[in-house]
Structure formats: structure tokens, C-alpha cells
Design a protein around this nucleic acid. Structure first.
Lengths: 142, 142
DNA sequence: TGATTTTGTTATCAATTGATAAGTAAAAGA
DNA sequence: TCTTTTACTTATCAATTGATAACAAAATCA
């Protein structure tokens, strides 16, 4: 196995992912949301419930800045903070119904593109794609 | 096959790709280069020679801001501006030798970080990963 | 218990980035 | 020729984002 070729494929895939999803991040200008707030909301959407520390670590935003942005998002009623009864220092962040609605709306154009692309895929293709996503998620892009 | 679950996995993977890429490019960035300057340099690298207008259009940066950043990058001796003899309003932007060296170094360190990440993968894993990348590249992110 | 670590907040300042107005020089068009 | 358009620059202000210090409360540890 030539790992150099594998790296080239990886770069190619990354570029494609960026290109295909550019529309998603671009259309996310949903009024009062800044890019970093969208990024945080995106992470919360796929990982909820999450703690502020996890957001800080995974999105490479300092804790004070994470706290500031979470406060702003919270004031827009897009997320809610639930304190952990087992450890009262911790907070679990979740999307509110309004937040879910906004992110779902935001993902819609991407989803329709995605569904269009896989609409003609066979059952075997779909299983291949799912397996491929699992592989890359766990082994490369973790 | 629930296509909705498949889409969720897709979003999750996209998010991870963004996060990992950000981490990798962050590590490879030179100290004196800001994120937007890196983005511009990356575009110049794969598309040179380019004009400021093309950079502005393709990277969605306004002309005044593009001009400002190009000036800064130029002052760091990473690019050079060559005016088009056929149309003296136009400029062709190219990487200088120093700029080429920097981007090449940056690409190399990106690769080494990728290799580190897959270094413990078995031969079967590597084949799985390659196959997964091919699948997603051809069926979803084309 | 008392010291230390973890988790998160508030406040503040600097740097980066975005947006807009105004201007220059060259090319294109009437 | 003279007007308009194109390509780019300069200047300026506002918003976003990054970085750091100081703090509080709860958990852990010794």
C-alpha cells in the first residue's frame, strides 16, 4: 500500500468535501449568526449533548471565548444549558426546538443535494457508502 | 436503509473533516500568516498565476480586502505581482521562491500528520480506508 | 480538613476580517 | 475625442475573533 497515494486521495476527498459543502456554510448566514457561532452550532448538532469544555477542545476555541459565544447563542434561544446533577460544575448544551429548526433548515439544501446524489444508488451502494463513512470517521477523521 | 440516518452520518463526517483539516492546517501555518492569508496562498498555489479579481471572486473576499491582504503577503516576500503587458490594469500573482518553499513545507507537514494518524492501521485497514475514500469521492463528494 | 484541580465565567484589549466610500489608471466603447 | 467600464488601491470604521488575567464554585485529593 502506497501511503503517498492514499494521502493524495485524502487531500482530494478533503477538497471535494470543502467544495461540496461550501454552499452549506455560505447559506448559513441565517441573520444573526456569525461564522464561529455556526461552527459551534454545527458541532452541537452532531454531538449533543456536549459540555463547553468539549466544544472548546474540539473546535479549538479557548474556554473564555467558547463561554462568550455560547452565552450569545443562548441569548438567541438556539441552545439551552442543563447543569449536570452528578457534577454541578458541568453543563450539558443542547439545541432548543428553535435551534433544531434552524439547523435543520440550514442542512436542508445539503440534504436535498445528498439525497439527489444517492437516489439512484442500489441497496449495496448505500451499504458501501455507510460503511465507508464509518471507516473514515473512526480511522482518519476522528 | 434509512437515508435520514445516512445523511446524519454524512453531516457528522463533513464536520469531522472540517475540524481535522482546520487542526492540520493550523499546525502547518507559519507564525506570521493569518488564516485568510493562508487561504489566499493555498488558492494561489493550486491556481497560479491568478489575478486579484479571481482571488476575490473565488475566495469570496471583497476587492479592497483582497488588495490589502495581497499587499501584506507581498511585503512578506511570499508572492510577487507581475503586470500584464497586454492589459496594464491586470496583475498576475505568483508565489515567490520563498512562497513556494513555505507552501511546500506546509503541505509536507500536513502529509506527515496524516501518516502519523494512520501509522498503526493494519494492511486491511488501509485498504478499507482507500476503498472508503474512493466510494465517497465517486458517489457522494464528486 | 485544607490544598489543589477541574469547569466555567466575566472583563478587557489586541488582531483579524468585513464593508463601504472615494480615488487612480488603463482599456473599451460611443 | 470623450464617456463609461474594468481592475485595482487607499483609507476608514465596525464587527468578529483571539488572547489573557482574574475570578467563583464545585469536585478531588492528600
Amino acid at each position: 500500500m502506497d501511503k503517498s497515494i492514499l494521502f493524495t486521495k485524502c487531500v482530494s476527498l478533503i477538497t471535494s468535501v470543502h467544495r461540496v459543502t461550501h454552499k452549506l456554510t455560505k447559506n448559513s448566514k441565517s441573520d444573526s449568526i456569525t461564522p464561529i457561532q455556526y461552527k459551534i452550532l454545527e458541532y452541537i448538532t452532531v454531538s449533543q449533548p456536549v459540555t463547553p469544555s468539549e466544544i472548546s477542545d474540539c473546535q479549538h476555541i479557548s474556554m473564555p471565548n467558547t463561554s462568550r459565544e455560547l452565552k450569545k447563542i443562548s441569548e438567541k434561544n438556539l441552545i439551552e444549558k442543563i447543569s449536570d446533577p452528578a457534577d454541578r460544575r458541568k453543563q450539558f448544551i443542547r439545541l432548543t426546538e428553535q435551534g433544531e429548526a434552524m439547523m435543520s433548515e440550514s442542512f436542508k439544501s445539503l440534504e436535498s443535494l445528498f439525497l439527489t446524489r444517492i437516489q439512484n444508488a442500489s441497496k449495496e451502494d448505500l451499504q458501501d457508502i455507510e460503511h465507508a463513512m464509518d471507516i473514515l470517521q473512526t480511522k482518519v477523521f476522528y
